[in-house]
Write a protein that binds this DNA or RNA. Structure first.
Lengths: 138, 138
DNA sequence: TTGTAAAACTACCAAAAGAGTAGGATAAGT
DNA sequence: ACTTATCCTACTCTTTTGGTAGTTTTACAA
């Protein structure tokens, strides 16, 4: 039960982009964050495919957010890499657990799933930049 | 980011034990829950090592909880399999992330970690048996 | 005391996921 | 044309996960 490095690096890259007043190059993100530029390739690509960032190509390129930092959540970023936030298989829409009718454990996991998603939805790039998350920390 | 089957089966096994009015054999748990008895070996062993269940050996054996169902939490069960609930490496006590002083992402993950742990602590075998978790579900 | 049933313990294996690398294709300045 | 940076595909290596197999130990019962 771990958050993948893709999601973690993805968040850091998004923060880097959100922080800058102008467009920022992928290779600069890589440098600032100490992440291999090649690996960041995939990450940035996923973020772009998810519609969270965009860029102009060529010399004057560089990435920018497609919308307000207050409107981009951790949930959005996470889903750029994992389409479904699903802590246990039996909750997945694709799979029907044959025990689900009688299984008393299922509501436990679905409850956990819900609070995780709710949390992720509540965290925006803006709130992170303002340091609001650190308040929950204690 | 998944809950392991060990933890999931572990919860189901614990519920099975908690439900019964008398001691229950491992092989009966396996049968009732549709889990390979051999695999359950490991799971039951972890639960026992963690001090959550105990048994008499030999013919009249069978497992029982070591304490009140209201005093055994999902967090206890989870830790029987994963010693540390830690969604990202940089939160681990063993590892010191060199970025941690300036990293704005870290509080996000530590906040997530906290709510997950809080949830797990709030779920007891007793509350599950009474179906209280299903209320959060919607 | 011997048989037997169940749990304990150890070792192993196969599949999947995760993390990261490599390299060529493409597009857009200069 | 040359360069620079992104795009895209494929591949590799490592770790984790899920699960099986087999042998040992314990304790009861005939």
């Amino acid at each position: 039960m771990k958050i993948s490095t893709r999601t973690r690096y993805g968040l850091r890259a998004m923060l880097e982009i959100a922080r800058g007043e102008s467009a920022i190059l992928q290779k600069d993100i890589a440098e600032n964050q100490g992440i291999s530029n090649k690996y960041l390739d995939q990450i940035v690509h996923s973020l772009k495919t998810a519609g969270l960032i965009s860029n102009a190509r060529g010399k004057k390129s560089g990435y920018v957010l497609t919308r307000d930092p207050g409107k981009i959540t951790l949930y959005d970023i996470h889903r750029a890499f994992d389409p479904e936030v699903c802590l246990v298989e039996c909750l997945s829409e694709n799979i029907k657990c044959e025990l689900s009718d009688t299984c008393q454990a299922q509501p436990v996991w679905s409850g956990l799933n819900k609070i995780v998603i709710d949390y992720m939805r509540s965290v925006t790039l803006e709130s992170v930049l303002k340091g609001k998350e650190s308040l929950r920390n204690k």
